[in-house]
Amino acid sequence: MPEPHTSFGARLQAAMAARGPLCVGIDPHPGLLQAWGLEDDAVGLERFSLTVLEAVGEQAAAVKPQVALFERHGSRGLAALEKVLAAAAGAGVLTIADAKRGDIGSTMAAYAQAWLADGAPLAADAVTLSPFLGYESLRPALDLAEQTGRGVFVLALTSNPEGASVQHVGGEDSVARRIVRAAAADNAAARDAGTLGSVGLVVGATVGDAPARLGLDLAGLNGPVLAPGLGAQGATGADLRRSFGPAFGQVLGTSSRDILKAGPDAAGLREAVARTLEMVAG
């Protein structure tokens, strides 16, 4: 765990500057496990995940375990995730637990304790959250992340077709725009201190011109933007520049399957990361 005064936003900003704006997803899909010659069980996903971490940890700004793919194996899967998170912390690799948690009251507080509390078995550097019970329902997680020097990534504008039926609603005062404004307000203190805030947003890399059409001030967020969809889902570095415009420097592009299919050979994984970084920079 970092010292309390070192915020997640500042640490991620430093990692992106040093290694490039790429997050590698750790997604032990059954098909990938089979392609790697591993069993679809807790032992296989642990071996898969630790291989990815060891291969790309020094290249990527962060890694993002997909929590659901560990949960499907029950307690043994979560135990494997605990080992992956601990190994990443020991190696100094930032982790984003892709859990998409969202609830109210004491239940939200319990989720916050699970993913963001010091000493929690599943504690990550940041966790993804769903705000669609109301942004302020996430307050237990937002407050705990600030206290422990961790971060959150709040879903704002996702690339799945169904997302528009909620996120685009409201026209000039869309749901997505309200989420962006609320997150920017939580990053105000970091802006005053001249650092990147720790309340990030999830905006799909394949959303096209939706940020502009909805009037989203992502540059004013003063926080990181996690953009899944590089590679296998079709997004390129040029797409990120077009979609995010002046906020491009805050964007942490995410690639999972396009990199993971290069395994289990560590050199192949590292080469895939290097290609992706070059594509984003190009």
Results as ranks from 00 to 15, higher is better:
229 G>W: 13
116 L>W: 11
22 L>M: 08
253 G>T: 09
91 A>D: 08
51 T>I: 00
173 D>R: 15
117 A>I: 02
199 V>C: 07
44 G>W: 09
150 R>P: 00
130 S>L: 10
70 F>Y: 15
214 L>R: 05
164 A>N: 05
269 L>M: 07
210 A>T: 11
234 G>W: 13
4 P>H: 15
233 Q>S: 10
166 V>F: 11
106 S>W: 10
238 A>Q: 13
195 T>E: 15
103 D>P: 07
90 G>A: 04
252 L>K: 12
214 L>E: 03
229 G>H: 14
173 D>L: 09
8 F>C: 03
147 Q>T: 12
208 G>W: 12
132 F>I: 01
54 E>P: 00
90 G>I: 03
97 A>W: 02
224 P>H: 15
89 A>F: 12
252 L>C: 13
152 V>Y: 07
233 Q>H: 11
204 G>R: 09
208 G>H: 11
213 R>D: 12
155 L>H: 06
159 S>K: 02
71 E>R: 12
137 S>W: 04
238 A>N: 12
210 A>P: 00
233 Q>C: 08
215 G>T: 00
50 L>Y: 06
241 R>C: 03
244 F>K: 05
67 V>Q: 02
257 R>Y: 10
219 A>S: 10
264 P>N: 15
94 L>G: 08
15 A>V: 07
62 A>Q: 04
176 A>G: 02
119 G>E: 11
92 G>F: 10
207 V>K: 00
244 F>V: 03
58 E>I: 00
276 T>E: 08
162 E>G: 14
27 D>R: 10
100 K>C: 08
188 A>L: 10
33 L>P: 12
226 L>V: 09
17 A>K: 14
250 Q>M: 06
86 A>V: 03
68 A>K: 08
62 A>S: 13
50 L>C: 08
160 N>Y: 11
142 L>N: 10
72 R>Q: 15
93 V>W: 09
77 G>E: 04
110 A>V: 07
130 S>K: 05
148 T>K: 05
180 V>Y: 04
